[in-house]
Each structure stands twice: as structure tokens, then as C-alpha cells.
Computed example of a mutant assay.
Amino acid sequence: MSGKLPRAIVFDVFGSVVDWRTSLIDELTAFGAERRIEANWVKLVDDWRGEYIPSLKKVYKGELPWMTLDDLHRASLETLVAGQGIEGLTEADLAYMTRGWHRLKPWPDSVAGLRRLKQGFIIAPLSNGNVSLLVDMAKGADLPWDLVLGCDLFGRYKPAPETYLGAARLLGLEPGEVMMAAAHNGDLKAAKALGLMTAFFARPTEYGPRQEYDLAPTGDWSYVASDIEDLARQLGV
């Protein structure tokens, strides 16, 4: 623990603030039952998230033009639906499924922890999600952000430096006055290299019962907490 306090805290969202896996599995299982569509929804959700990094890398490398995360999610979904032989889905169904990422539920500590942090700090998501996705999610999950920082504001995805430094610039702060908070060590490593403060809290079931990484901090982060409420306690709010 550094003892130094930031002026703003920006959060990774998927997996750090919201439980994407349980949210999507529950929603799609109910959706499939209602529409009488047979599928292995757990596999679809896990494979869908598995396409996340590869699709981002295609954008990084210029193999795909810049597009929002909504567009990447939709393209991945269409590929997976075809590959897994899921039949009977309409255009409206695919649109509804893609927007499931807008309706993710928070981890049990997230809303209370964020409300506490909001008392003493500027708080915002700094996510690879697009602004419209993050605004919808905030409304649905009652996430009390002061502003929303989606990567479509910068035209780049994390871990590009333009995202972390762009957040500080938009807030009118120096990088060292901003803390990146996440359940992912790689996100924090990129932020720290650019001078941001860092906070780690593990989400050991983000990827299900067999998660093998991000179970513990792997860097010298400014703060290490058990969850967002514990981070708020350590920061004195």
C-alpha cells in the first residue's frame, strides 16, 4: 500500500465491476427456454468471451478497422452461432443477445463500494466497452459513475497508452493523480507503466470454477484489496 491518495479512480468493468459470465448464462438460458431454442448456453458464453482478446488484436494489428465493442461482440456471436449449429435465431434475437452485454449485473460489493468511493473521489469506468454500452449498463446496474469513459472516445482499445493517458487528460489530471482499479493484472501493468496509480482486487470466479489466472496480484500495485468495498475502506471513505 502506497498511502498516497488519487484524485480520480477509473475502473475496468467487465469482470472487475460486473459479473459478465453469470449474467449472460442466466439471461441466455432463460431466453433459450422462452424461445425454445436448443443450445449449450454456458459454452456459448465462454466461447463468446474467448473471442474478445483475439478480436481486439485484429483491430490492434489493422486486420479489422476500428469498431465498437458492440460491433465486435455481434460479429463474434454470428460466427459462434453458426459454428455451434444453433438454429432458429432471428435478426431481432441476435440483436437482443448482443445487447446482453449492456445488461450485466454487478458483483455484490460493487454498487456499495462505488458509492463509498464517490464520496471522496471522481469515479468512472475506463473500459473497452463503448459509451452507449456503459451508459446502459450503469442505468441497469445502478453504477454511480461521475462520467463514462469508453474506448470509443479515444479510438483505441486498452492497453493502448492513448486510453489511460486520455482518461487523465479528459479529467484535467496528471497520470499520477489517477488510479486504475481492476481485477486484471495486465490492465494494471499497462496503467502503471504510464505513471498511473493502481489497485487490484481479485474476482476468482470471473471465468468460472476453473479460473487459473488473476487469482492474486502479480505486480507491485499501489493498493491490493479483497473487493471494491475493501478498497474504499483502505482509501478512507
Rank of each mutant, 00 (worst) to 15 (best):
I228E: 05
S2F: 09
G85C: 09
R116N: 05
I25N: 12
G15W: 13
P209Y: 14
L171R: 12
A199D: 02
M197P: 00
L134K: 11
R103S: 03
D26G: 10
T218Y: 05
K158M: 06
G155Y: 05
T163D: 04
E174I: 10
I53L: 02
R49L: 01
S110Y: 07
K189H: 07
A193Q: 04
M137P: 01
T29N: 10
V59T: 08
E63P: 02
T198Q: 02
A181H: 11
P144N: 15
A182C: 04
G236W: 03
Q84I: 11
R116Q: 09
G85A: 08
L147I: 02
F154T: 08
K139Y: 12
R49Y: 11
E212P: 11
L188W: 07
P106N: 12
Q211F: 03
A193C: 04
Y157Q: 12
N130A: 08
L165M: 07
M1R: 14
T79D: 07
A168E: 07
V42N: 15
A39H: 10
P125Q: 11
A82W: 04
P144L: 15
W20P: 00
M179K: 06
G219L: 05
D152F: 06
P209W: 14
P6L: 00
V45S: 07
S55D: 09
V42Y: 12
S110P: 00
M180R: 03
H73Y: 14
A141T: 00
